[in-house]
């Protein structure tokens, strides 16, 4: 019984990685431009549908590389044409904008592909299970987690160890100073939106073999991703990671002890408690212009 419990804890820890890619992107877009991108889940759905279209041509691994790039491109276009008009005004407007955008994308997918879920198969090479003693895990999920960790690590290096990252981080704290140093933030904003939305596209491909692909799949995942961001603290890299793990763990443990019907409620309860004790989230930074 103890073995099973440990297995559940481990599984819960890993479960968090699925929201991580989405939640990190959400957090990134918010911290730089102050936009709460409710359409983030819709880009995740676009990623999944693109995977269906591209896989027959390039295979799964080709799609894994191409789809995030295409979705990142879409993200940059969206940033240039839509987000850029909303950086300096009340976040409520961008909330409305991205909420509408999410609906347009969802309905667009329904229009093009139909409401019926699409089938998508796992590549044969990643099928099967791995055993660690008594703990069984799916080979595909190990791959999924590895890719997610790589992507997150890459993002960390980009933000913390490069000149690009330094300017982005400076832009988060004080765009005016960055401007007065003669650096235009605009191209950086586009690239960051591209990366953040591309990560959602990557998550779309990664989750297609194990989740149902249907037009509303974005709406399904965005709420939880948003909760992760709020618990972790908007704009906080490590906060979001810790929160994703906490959320996965909470769900896993509650299912393990037979309280599965509480597993969703508990996450919101967790958010409630965190907000009560730390209104900025676990590791939420103080971002001057949002105070």
């Amino acid at each position: 019984m103890l073995g099973l419990f440990i297995a559940q804890v481990l599984n819960g820890l890993l479960d968090g990685t699925y929201y991580l890619l989405i939640a990190l992107g959400l957090s990134l877009i918010f911290s730089l431009g102050g936009i709460i991108n409710l359409a983030h889940g819709a880009f995740f759905a676009i990623g999944a549908y693109l995977a269906i279209l591209i896989t027959p041509v390039t295979g799964f691994f080709g799609a894994l590389i191409l789809v995030p790039l295409i979705v990142a491109g879409l993200g940059m276009v969206t940033e240039r044409t839509l987000f850029t008009r909303f950086y300096r005004i009340d976040p409520l407007y961008s909330l409305l904008l991205t909420f509408g955008l999410a609906m347009v994308i969802e309905q667009g997918l329904r229009w093009i592909f139909g409401a019926s879920p699409q089938s998508y198969n796992m590549p044969d090479i990643l099928r099967g299970q791995v055993f660690f003693g008594d703990f069984i895990y799916s080979r595909y999920r190990i791959f999924l987690i590895a890719v997610a960790v790589l992507a997150v690590a890459g993002l960390w290096v980009l933000l913390n160890r490069t000149a690009f990252g330094r300017i982005v981080r400076a832009g988060v704290q004080n765009p005016e100073i960055v401007g007065s140093l003669g650096i235009s933030l605009r191209p950086y904003l586009s690239v960051v939106a591209g990366i953040a939305i591309g990560l959602a596209g990557l998550a779309g491909v990664l989750l297609s073999p194990i989740y149902t692909i249907h037009p509303a799949m974005g709406a399904e995942i965005i709420t939880l991703a948003f909760v992760v961001v709020v618990i972790g603290g908007l704009g906080s890299f490590w906060g979001v990671i810790i929160a994703a793990v906490l959320v996965g763990l909470t769900k896993g443990v509650l299912v393990a002890v037979g309280l599965s019907s509480w597993s969703t409620a508990a996450i919101y309860l967790l958010m409630f408690v965190v907000l009560l004790l730390r209104p900025r989230g676990l590791l939420g930074e103080r971002i001057l212009r949002f105070e």
């Binding site: 599984n11 999920r141 299912v255």
Partner: peptide, 10 residues
Amino acid sequence: DATDFSSYLL
């Protein structure tokens, strides 16, 4: 709203 069944499967 559950999408992941891994804990149940274990």
